[in-house]
């Protein structure tokens, strides 16, 4: 029975996240437009775009290799598996024992590698530039992320995401400076990993400032649809991750019934909506920074995460 429940939760979670991902992107765009005084497209627009892209025949460059055709699937698969591991409305999913935070970082790295390979496949200047920049940023983002994981691991005793979420929900940890610092660091990493302002502008097509978009210049049709869908999934993943770790309230505990799921669903919707609002507000308020300011931004996040761990060593009386 427990197994059946966990399978059901897993499937529902997957369906929910797959359906919600383009909506999250659409919602952020709509909110941003509203804040800037425009009417903005409906939050459903990304879904319509995806379906339209699927109908179009993809055009590949003459010297494109098999990489261009396989990488979209690889990138999508890695992101989809990663997103299946992050709990949304309920804990105790079927894949919870597999859902390790370090593995999550590995899967995101796999997706990033697939995207960078596709960007370099045809040998265009912009694709190479975007790939080099994306990989360079990750050299600062990954350590910051892992130091955040260290903070969680100290408090929860494990890097399993489900267990971390449960500990942060049940164990009265209180408001901790370390967790606050880790939250700031994690948000900075999330902004960088998703290519949002101020690190990258998801709406730009100005060649010299592109990072993420530069790698997609040659993609079209279903390939572009897959890349866009994967990007939407990644944003959803990061928001859900922040929600699962720092805002664990409301989620249905492992082995609970449909009523608790419904409450969890509502709580998740509220949390995700709030995070989207925060993201939109932040993006409207700040300007994009120069590419070579990004290491400082991420380096600051890294140091904050290190600080969080250091303060934790002291406050838990470990030292």
């Amino acid at each position: 029975m427990l197994i059946l429940g966990s399978i059901l939760v897993q499937l529902l979670h997957l369906a929910l996240v797959l359906a919600a991902a383009p909506l999250v992107i659409g919602l952020v765009r709509w909110l941003k437009a509203r804040m800037m005084g425009r009417r903005g497209a409906s939050p459903l627009q990304p879904w319509r775009d995806l379906l339209k892209l699927l109908r179009k025949r993809p055009v590949l460059a003459e010297n494109a290799s098999v990489i261009s055709e396989v990488a979209p699937f690889a990138g999508f698969a890695a992101t989809a598996v990663a997103v299946a591991l992050v709990p949304s409305f309920a804990r105790g999913m079927l894949l919870a024992p597999v859902g390790d935070l370090v593995l999550l970082a590995g899967l995101l790295a796999l997706a990033r590698m697939a995207l960078a390979l596709a960007g370099m496949d045809v040998g265009t200047a912009f694709g190479g530039m975007g790939a080099a920049r994306e990989m360079s940023f990750s050299a600062f983002a990954e350590p910051a992320l892992l130091l955040c994981v260290l903070t969680f691991a100290i408090l929860a005793g494990t890097t399993n995401l489900d267990a971390v979420s449960a500990t942060f929900h049940d164990g009265a940890l209180g408001l901790r400076v370390s967790l606050g610092l880790a939250a700031v660091a994690m948000l900075a990493v999330a902004v960088a990993e998703n290519g949002r302002i101020p690190v990258d502008n998801p709406a730009t097509h100005l060649e010299l400032t592109m990072v993420h978009e530069a790698m997609l210049l040659e993609a079209s049709g279903r390939h572009l649809a897959l890349w866009d869908y994967a990007a939407a999934l990644r944003l959803t993943l990061w928001l859900a991750l922040v929600a699962a770790v720092f805002l664990p309230f409301g989620a249905a505990p492992a082995g609970s019934g449909p009523l608790a799921w419904l409450v969890g669903l509502l709580a998740w919707a509220v949390k995700m909506g709030g995070l989207c609002l925060m993201l939109a507000g932040f993006e409207s308020a700040v300007a994009k920074m120069r590419v070579f300011r990004v290491p400082e931004f991420l380096g600051a996040a890294l140091l904050l995460a290190l600080l969080a761990a250091a303060l934790l060593f002291v406050s838990t009386g470990l030292a």
């Binding site: 025949r57 993809p58 055009v59 590949l60 460059a61 003459e62 010297n63 494109a64 055709e69 045809v122 265009t124 200047a125 912009f126 060649e207 210049l217 040659e218 049709g221």
Partner: peptide, 9 residues
């Protein structure tokens, strides 16, 4: 899939 000349902006 169709093949065409590279776009490259």
């Amino acid at each position: 899939t169709r093949r065409g000349p590279v776009w490259n902006c």
